[in-house]
Design a protein around this nucleic acid. Structure first.
Length: 818
RNA sequence: GCGGAUAUGGCGGAAUUGGCAGACGCGCUGGAUUUAGGAUCCAGUAGUUAACAGCUGUGCAGGUUCAAGUCCUGUUAUCCGCACCA
């Protein structure tokens, strides 16, 4: 019984206090706050580590259990980095502009600013109750005029550099939200937020030229450490394709129609053209079209269709010929008919295609349906049965000077020819479109431009920023799609900063993605009123070392913010071409019934309830333990209980601590193994197995019946990033030096991660027949000697001939017999 | 249709490079303790079997190998992304 440490100096297991998370969690949260424990230091001599999680939209529903999954994960990384000696920046803020708040405000007649304040206060409390090691002194809020002043400033820079322009184009219009949407916000033809129907609406819109950065956004993916899934999705979204732009003349007209094609080699097989119904040439040549009534009807129908209907797959191709017009195939001067069809999109390429039915599946379907000629120009398939699209093995035929060439040879040859003749040129095309940046809503950043009759669009001078939102009575949107701001004449009517004449303010506001496109920069220097952030600070902290967030933001926020950052880099405002060095993504947490958590399904878990009943540490440990971090996983209330039980067992370890330093011989290997496993698993985001390792170690501790102070100290440090409150408390109770968060992350000795005596599985013909114990450095003969003493082995060998022996040190010994 | 991922006990999931399948947790069964248990502790828990002997077993069908959850070929199902992108 000697040397056992107990809380009350009595006997073993006598009087330790009960584990009371409610009490100790509050206690440590207060201590950390008072001491500013997790503030990033201004000391730049230390190596830095910038950990970032996507800041939340403070919705009225409060925190979702999905938020803490991401936050706990990077909290673990951040806490580990501090223990490793880094100066860590782990900030948080609020992405607080946006529709739900505004809708709530309208419905309940409360100003969106008040709603936002309330929601933020609730979120802040919830996050604080979970003990995240955020640097709260750097909190940002996108709706704060001191913040959006800089959002507006960046917008003006984009405008100055010609990257923001106003265009009258058909945009995606959500009929529910009564707001224009970016392409990225339309999912499966409906609004990604509300699921409402999206129609095409022609509106004058502010656009950002993200397409100008398509090449950089694509190429620089090779320079960053993002999970492959994200890179693949961004590449697909940018959708680069190489080909040629070819000019088709209209017979008897002085008009040229350009098409984009990736298969210029098949030009001799182009037997007709198809234009998008919206193609401007159609109206332009109205007088020449003999079946105008039919054409007009088709165009009207196409316009009426929602995006969803129009892009619906597997529907029959439709179309109408432009009678009275013929195009001329530039390679052979043959006249070919021109059709319009809604399978040709105005928004991709030039809105017109050359149709090669023999070698394009869509054109083939169309030609078959309307009896258009099919001319084979690449040999290898049966073009009467289906389009032959192979580009690897086909040989050109019926193609004049291209005959006999492989497809891959023919492509550059024909492009050279087109360029020589002035009939076309090499061209790279992207699926990525410019970013529709206007929102017809109140609760967003005002666009800091005025329209002057004389000077056109004029930016508001920088020293007059921020342009703040006016107080209004009514935020209702109108069915005509005008922003609520348009109804405030005293705000709209202003003077031109340039000439002093009368001018009108832009009344649309920015999308929610504006403020989030640069928030990680503001965290670096959040109180700066001279610049969005000081260059010296930016140089120290950028890039973000590790950014975790949802897959749903891959082609939205993540792409947008890379674009803004690249622009800021080009104009010398940030020191790095890429904002984020590493990007990872967490899986969704589903309800207990394996369905997506939602109010309507009645399967929502409220984090507050879990913290209240089990404590924040249990909640954190459970979220990390429930399964692979990057996969969707259902919640299990029973599983939470198990994690609480684990922490109870940790708490009671106090009773086992003997007054001895170092590691005991019995547990030394287990300690080194655990340090290694936990260290590596945290880095690989294998949080579930790291926690499992710690659970196993606790089981080992109980099996051993007593542990040293050294063992307990190491264990507490390993568990600390996941369960920071209970570990600090135990650290204090045990009277260890200083505070736990000031300690050093433990090291392991590779040598000591293996026991001196190890177990080797002995197989006969690949089947395990026995397990033997041998010294860890035993050679094959030694292992064989031990194995042959085993009856379990010998009875399978008896009477047979040993033909082969395989020994994998530390793993198995296999004897092959015949 | 294209691209990506996944498939392992009653459940969530483990298994660096091919080397003892089912770690860890939940649940369940039995026991101890308790006035009580949604507390704690002990034992058991893939299937089959009288068995701590064997045999079978990682969606399905083949193959490579001394050895396959892992590699190869084919196939099915589910999920995610894109979706007439010329």
């Amino acid at each position: 019984m000697k040397g056992f440490f107990t809380y009350n100096s009595g006997g073993v297991s006598m009087h330790i206090k009960e584990y009371n998370p409610r009490e100790i969690e509050k206690k440590w949260q207060n201590i950390w706050e008072e001491k500013g424990t997790f503030r990033a230091s201004s000391d730049k001599s230390k190596p830095k580590f910038y950990a970032l999680v996507e800041f939340p939209y403070p919705s009225g529903d409060g925190l979702h259990v999905g938020h803490p999954r991401s936050y706990t994960a990077l909290d673990i990384i951040a806490r580990k980095r501090r223990l490793e000696g880094y100066n860590v920046l782990y900030p948080i803020g609020w992405d607080a502009f946006g529709l739900p708040t505004e809708n709530f405000a309208i419905k309940n007649k409360i100003h969106p600013r008040i709603v936002t304040e309330r929601n933020v206060a609730r979120f802040r409390n919830q996050l604080k109750s979970l003990g995240f090691s955020f640097d709260w002194s750097r909190e940002v809020n996108t709706t704060d005029p001191n913040y959006y002043r800089w959002t507006q400033w960046i917008f003006l820079k984009l405008f100055e550099h010609g990257l923001a322009y106003k265009a009258e184009i058909p945009i995606n219009w959500c009929t529910e939200c009564k707001v224009g949407l970016a392409n990225e916000e339309v999912v499966n033809g409906v609004c990604e937020r509300c699921g409402g129907e999206v129609i095409r609406k022609v509106k004058s819109q502010w656009m950002l030229k993200i397409t100008e950065y398509a090449e950089k956004l694509l190429n620089d993916l090779d320079t960053v450490d993002y999970i492959e899934k994200v890179k693949v999705q961004q590449r697909n979204w940018i959708g680069r394709s190489e080909g040629a732009e070819v000019e088709f003349r209209i017979a008897g007209q002085d008009i040229i129609i350009k098409v984009f094609t990736t298969r210029p080699d098949t030009l001799f097989g182009a037997t007709y053209m198809v234009l998008s119904p919206e193609h401007p040439v159609v109206s332009q040549l109205k007088d020449k079209i003999t079946n105008w009534d039919q054409v007009e009807k088709y165009r009207e129908e196409a316009m009426k269709k929602s995006d969803f209907e129009r892009t619906e797959i597997s529907k029959e191709k439709t179309g109408v010929p432009l009678m009275g017009l013929m195009a001329v195939n530039p390679v052979n001067n043959k006249e070919i008919p021109i059709w319009i069809s809604d399978y040709v999109l105005m928004s991709y390429g030039t809105g017109a295609i050359m149709a090669v039915p023999a070698h394009d599946t869509r054109d083939w379907e169309f030609a078959k349906k309307f009896g258009l000629p099919i001319v084979e120009v690449v040999k290898g398939g049966d073009v009467e049965k289906e389009a032959y699209t192979d580009i690897e093995s086909g040989v050109m035929v019926n193609s004049g000077f291209l005959d006999g060439l492989q497809v891959k040879e023919a492509i550059p040859r024909i492009i050279d020819w087109l360029e020589e003749q002035g009939l076309g040129r090499r061209k790279v095309n992207y699926k990525l479109r410019d970013w529709v940046f206007s929102r017809q809503r109140y609760w967003g950043e005002p666009i800091p431009l005025v329209e002057c009759e004389k000077c056109g669009w004029v930016p508001i001078p920088e020293d007059q920023l921020p342009l703040t939102l006016p107080e209004v009575e009514n935020y209702m949107t109108t069915d005509t799609g005008e922003s609520p701001l348009a109804n405030i004449p005293e705000w709209v009517n202003t003077t031109c900063p340039k000439c002093g004449g009368p001018a009108k303010r832009e009344t649309d506001t920015m999308p929610q993605w504006a403020g989030s496109s640069w928030y990680f920069l503001r965290y670096i220097d959040p109180h700066n009123d001279k610049a969005f952030a000081d260059m010296e600070e930016l140089k120290y902290w950028l890039p973000v070392d590790w950014y975790n967030g949802g897959m749903e933001h891959t082609t939205l926020h993540l792409l947008y913010s890379r674009f803004w950052h690249k622009f800021l880099y080009d104009i010398g405002c940030v020191p790095t071409p890429e904002p984020y060095k590493k990007r990872t993504s967490h899986g969704m947490i589903l309800g207990e019934n394996n369905e997506k958590m939602s109010k309507s399904r009645g399967n929502v878990i409220n984090p507050d309830d879990i913290v209240e009943e089990f404590g924040a540490d249990t909640f954190r440990v459970y979220e990390m333990f429930l399964g692979a971090f990057d996969q969707a996983i259902p919640w299990s209330q029973q599983g939470v209980r198990g994690c609480r039980r684990f922490l109870e067992r940790v708490w009671r370890l106090q009773e086992l601590v003997a007054d001895e330093e170092g590691y005991s011989p019995e547990l030394e290997t287990a300690m080194h193994k655990a340090i290694k496993k936990v260290s590596e698993d945290f880095e690989r985001m294998k949080f579930n197995t790291a926690i499992a390792t710690l659970m196993s170690l606790v089981n080992d501790f109980y099996d051993a019946g007593r542990i040293t102070r050294g063992e307990f100290r190491t264990f507490l440090i390993l568990l600390n990033p996941a369960a920071p409150h209970i570990t600090e408390e135990l650290w204090e109770i045990l009277g260890f030096e200083g505070m736990l968060n000031e300690q050093k992350w433990p090291q392991w000795d590779e040598e000591k991660t293996v026991e001196d005596m190890i177990e080797i599985a002995v197989q006969v013909n690949g089947r395990v027949r026995d397990v033997i114990k041998v010294p860890k450095d035993a050679d094959q003969q030694a292992v064989k000697d031990v194995a042959m003493e085993s009856e379990n082995i010998t009875k399978f060998i008896e009477g047979k001939k040993i033909v082969k022996e395989i020994y994998v040190p530390g793993k198995i010994f296999n004897i092959v017999v015949k």
